[in-house]
C-alpha cells in the first residue's frame, strides 16, 4: 500500500516455496518455466490469478505457481473453474490438465467448458500416457502402445486433443511443446483471447513414454517436423533459414491440405496458404493433419472470439434483477396468501 506504482514482476515472483516433485528431466519443468516467464509479460497479478487443476502429474502445477491455486479431483477442474469464474469473473483462471484427466475421466467437462466458452486458459499437457499411476496407456496413446495394462499393445484409436477441442466448439486452439522457445508466445495469445483458450502442449514423459514426440520436437527434426503458424503469414516449413522450402497448400480437388515444395522462396507460386486464425474450416484441417505425411501444426491454429459464458450469465442476472429490490420478507410472503385474523381466514 506504500507504493502504488506497479512493480514489474519477474518469473521468480511466480515461484512458490514448495519443492517441485516431478521426475528429474520431466517436460513439466519446462512448461512451468514457460508459464512463469509468461505471467509477468501479460501483466498478471498473483492475487487475481487462479490455477485450477485435476489429478495427474500435470495437475500438481498449482502448487508451484505463486498465485491462488486449487488442486481438485480427477477430471473435474473445468467444472470447479466454472464455479470460480462465475462467482468472480474478474479472476484470471488457468486450468492445467493432462490427456487422461482432461480427455478421459474429465472429457465431458472439457467438452462443456469449451462449448460454453468460459473465459479461461486450458493447458492440456499431452504425454500420451498415464504418468502418475505408473504408465498405463491413455486416450491419446497411439494404437499398439504397450503398457502395464496393454502388454500386447493398445487396440483403441487415440483421441486428438486439438480436434476434440475444435469439435466441442472451442474458439481458440493453440499448440506447443514443453521445451519450445515459442511456448510463451502461444500462452500469451491464449491469455489475450477472451473466452476458453485451449492449448495442447506436447510433454515428454521421460519415465513412461520417453521421446514419443521426438520426431518433431528434436532439433534435428524441427525443419520437417514443425509447422509454426502465424496469422497473416504463409504456412511454411522445411529449411526456414532459406525462408521455408516446403509449404501447406489446399488440394482443391479433394478439399484437403497437401504439402508442396517451395522453390526459391516463391511460396505464392507454390500455392501455399496464408494462415488466417479466424478461418474455422482450415483450422479443422490443421488439427486433423496426420503427422508424418505432414508436419505438426504448432502455434495459434485458431483464434476467433465470441462472447463468453460468464459475461452472458452476469448480463442475464443483472437484467433479470433489474428494478427488483431484494426483500426477504416480501419473498417469503409471495404466492397466494391469506390472513388469519380473530374471526378466521380471509384473502
Amino acid at each position: 500500500m506504500n507504493d502504488m506504482t506497479p512493480v514489474k514482476l519477474t518469473p521468480k515472483d511466480w515461484e512458490t516455496d514448495q519443492e517441485v516433485r516431478w521426475c528429474p528431466g520431466c517436460g513439466d519443468y519446462a512448461i512451468l518455466k514457460a508459464v512463469q516467464r509468461t505471467l509477468p509479460d501479460i501483466g498478471a497479478t498473483p492475487e487475481n490469478t487462479v490455477f485450477v487443476s485435476g489429478i495427474g502429474c500435470s495437475s500438481r502445477f498449482p502448487y508451484y505457481v505463486e498465485s491462488y491455486g486449487f488442486h481438485t479431483i480427477h477430471g473435474r477442474a473445468p467444472a470447479v473453474a466454472t464455479g470460480v469464474k462465475l462467482a468472480n469473473p474478474a479472476l484470471d483462471v488457468w486450468i492445467v490438465t493432462g490427456d487422461g484427466d482432461g480427455l478421459s475421466i474429465g472429457g465431458n467437462h472439457t467438452m462443456h467448458i469449451l462449448r460454453r466458452n468460459l473465459d479461461c486458459q486450458i493447458l492440456l499437457f499431452n504425454n500420451e500416457i498415464y504418468g502418475l499411476t505408473k504408465g498405463q496407456y491413455s486416450p491419446t496413446s497411439r494404437e499398439g502402445t504397450k503398457s502395464p495394462s496393454t502388454p500386447f499393445g493398445s487396440v483403441d484409436h487415440p483421441a486428438k486433443p486439438a480436434a476434440f477441442a475444435l469439435g466441442s466448439g472451442a474458439r481458440f486452439v493453440g499448440r506447443g511443446f514443453d521445451v519450445s522457445k515459442n511456448l510463451p508466445d502461444v500462452l500469451k495469445a491464449a491469455h489475450a483471447h477472451k473466452g476458453a483458450a485451449f492449448v495442447e502442449i506436447f510433454q515428454n514423459c521421460i519415465v513412461y513414454n520417453k521421446d514419443v514426440f521426438a520426431d518433431f520436437t528434436e532439433k534435428k527434426n524441427a525443419d520437417d517436423g514443425q509447422l509454426w503458424l502465424e496469422h497473416g503469414k504463409p504456412m511454411l516449413f522445411g529449411n526456414m533459414k532459406l525462408g521455408g522450402t516446403k509449404g501447406i497448400a489446399l488440394d482443391k480437388e479433394k478439399l484437403t491440405l497437401k504439402v508442396v515444395e517451395v522453390v526459391d522462396g516463391d511460396w505464392e507460386a507454390a500455392g501455399v496458404i496464408v494462415h488466417d486464425v479466424t478461418n474455422r474450416s482450415v483450422a479443422h484441417m490443421l488439427v486433423e493433419m496426420p503427422f508424418g505425411a505432414f508436419p505438426m501444426a504448432l502455434g495459434v491454429l485458431y483464434d476467433d472470439p465470441v462472447p463468453t459464458f460468464e459475461s452472458a450469465v452476469v448480463q442475464q442476472n443483472e437484467l433479470a434483477a433489474k428494478g427488483k429490490m431484494p426483500d426477504l420478507q416480501k419473498l417469503v410472503s409471495q404466492g397466494q396468501t391469506w390472513t388469519v385474523g380473530k374471526s378466521g381466514p380471509e384473502l
Partner: peptide, 13 residues
Amino acid sequence: IAAIASAIGASYA
C-alpha cells in the same frame, strides 16, 4: 459431478 464441483469452485471464490 460438475454441479457440485462448480459449487465448490464458487465457494472457493
